[in-house]
Design a protein around this nucleic acid. Structure first.
Length: 417
RNA sequence: GUGGUCAUAGCUCAAUAGGUAGAGCACCAGGUUGUGAUCCUGGCGGUUGGGGGUUCAAGUCCCCUUGGCCACCCCA
């Protein structure tokens, strides 16, 4: 065991996995930029209040934050998510609406780590501020859906629900409280604690004793105002028009408290994991105001990079790719020839690597093979004397000796560049 | 945070009832002095996560500790 290793819940993303991560965010950017979203890069660190303001009844904010006092005596925290930062940013800069942004990057939550659950975990996501239209809900959901398709995922299910207008939600929560309080001691101990803080969350419980009471609990749909019901219906109509399959899940609640009206979650196809929530989001009208900005409707989603990649592993899509190199230079006469050749070839846009330490030709050929390069360019005593190089196709075909002055033209022609 | 489980070479694993650590892969070097992927030979590599204890003897038993994984919790 090495003296130092990564802290719990932290890890290195090594090659070739790291290349897969980069492609992941590139594909995401491609999908959402095609819909008019632009990237926002918020800081990793914010005033603690930015996060406490958004949900002081949630574990994410009350128990799991990396918060501390900095050298300037400010109370700050590593962001546990990015929606709050986006809203803070909106309230601070007041951009014109609609403000359509996307982001990607790490968040921090002090939890007990597991597979697909890390203390530093990456998310990609979008947020739109300033638009109330249910067709925007449809667009946002469809972008998540489209992104999964772009990765090659086919077994993702979309769960959909509405929490109603804030007033509806309050009434519903009261009804739930009454309902669960009637259950009294028969409710699990955990749920009795949850009941005092946020009755909605009990609907998410997996504990056996709670199940009958969850089943008989009041339905959110009965509490929708006309407005909320109309909004929700419009969203469903829109999704159907786009042929996006969804499951209405009246018991779906989200972890953060700030959600209103439309909420949704993407679930992975693998059933045997408690970590199968790939991503989710919803409307959070009121968040910007809570952070000191003008009353502004908002909606967005965040997708977990790790979990989505695990889902890709399970479905056998979006594999890590071996790097593609054009040329590997083998220099058996000291290494100076290789220095010049790699430089010249890179200058015309080819990807080129070489061997070092003046190793044997056999050893350098092994490296050339391992590098996955299409061609080996070889210089030995004979070639150096003749001003020539050997060019050898690594994936089959005969090698040829050509004048060094013709190398670049020859390579570019062969590769159709 | 609670409970369970696991921890042996860079990686994946093996080691009969406690007797003093082995394989495959990877890596390196050779296989008649200029060329890779296959094949053959050899080599490098482990105070068995760390600490303490029981024993003549511990990778194997006990305790503590660190970390991974699983469930709860929470959520991405």
């Amino acid at each position: 065991m090495p003296e130092f290793q990564t802290s719990p819940g932290m890890r290195d993303i090594l090659p070739p996995e790291s290349g897969r991560w980069r492609r992941f965010t590139a594909v995401f950017a491609e999908v959402v930029e095609a819909a008019g979203y632009q990237q926002l890069i918020p800081p990793l660190l914010e005033d603690l209040g930015v996060f406490t303001r958004i949900g002081d009844a949630t574990d994410v904010v009350t128990k799991e934050m990396y918060d501390f006092v900095d050298k300037g005596k400010r109370r700050v925290a590593l962001r546990p998510e990015q929606t709050a930062s986006v809203c803070r940013s909106f309230a601070q800069h007041r951009p014109t609406v609609p403000w359509k942004v996307f982001y990607s990057g790490p968040n921090f939550r002090y939890e007990k780590p597991q597979r697909g659950r890390y203390r530093q975990f990456d998310q990609v996501g979008v947020e739109v501020l300033g638009v109330d239209d249910p067709m925007l809900d449809v667009e946002v959901i469809s972008l998540g859906w489209e992104f999964y398709r772009a990765l090659g995922l086919r077994q993702v299910t979309l769960q959909l629900n509405s929490l109603g207008e804030p007033g509806d939600r309050v009434q519903y929560v009261n009804a739930l409280r009454t309902h669960f309080e009637a259950a009294g001691e028969r409710l699990s101990e955990q749920s009795r604690i949850t009941l005092t803080k946020n009755p909605l969350r009990i609907l998410d419980s997996k504990r056996e004793p709670d199940q009958p009471f969850i089943k008989s609990a009041p339905q959110i749909a009965d509490f929708y105002s006309e407005e909320a019901a109309a909004h929700f219906d419009a969203v469903k109509v829109g999704l159907r028009a786009l042929d996006i399959q969804f499951v209405e899940e009246p018991k779906l609640v989200r972890g953060l408290d700030y959600y209103r009206r439309t909420i949704f979650e993407f679930l992975g196809g693998t059933l045997d994991s408690a970590q199968n929530a790939l991503g989710g989001g919803g409307r959070y009208d009121g968040l910007v105001q809570a952070l000191g900005g003008p009353a502004t409707p908002g909606i967005g989603f965040a997708l977990g990079v790790d979990r989505t990649l695990i889902a890709c592993d399970d479905e056998g899509c979006f594999d890590a790719e071996a790097p593609q190199l054009d040329v590997f230079v083998v220099d058996a006469v000291g290494g100076l020839e290789a220095a010049v050749l790699t430089s010249d070839l890179r200058a015309v846009g080819l990807s080129v690597d070489r061997g070092y330490d003046n190793r044997s030709m056999k050893a350098q050929m092994k490296l050339a093979n391992r590098s996955g390069a299409s061609f080996a360019v070889i210089v030995g005593e004979q070639e150096r004397a003749d001003g020539a190089v050997v060019i050898k196709p690594m994936h089959g075909g005969d090698q040829a000796t050509i004048p060094r002055s013709e190398l670049i033209a020859h390579l570019l022609e062969t590769m159709n560049l």
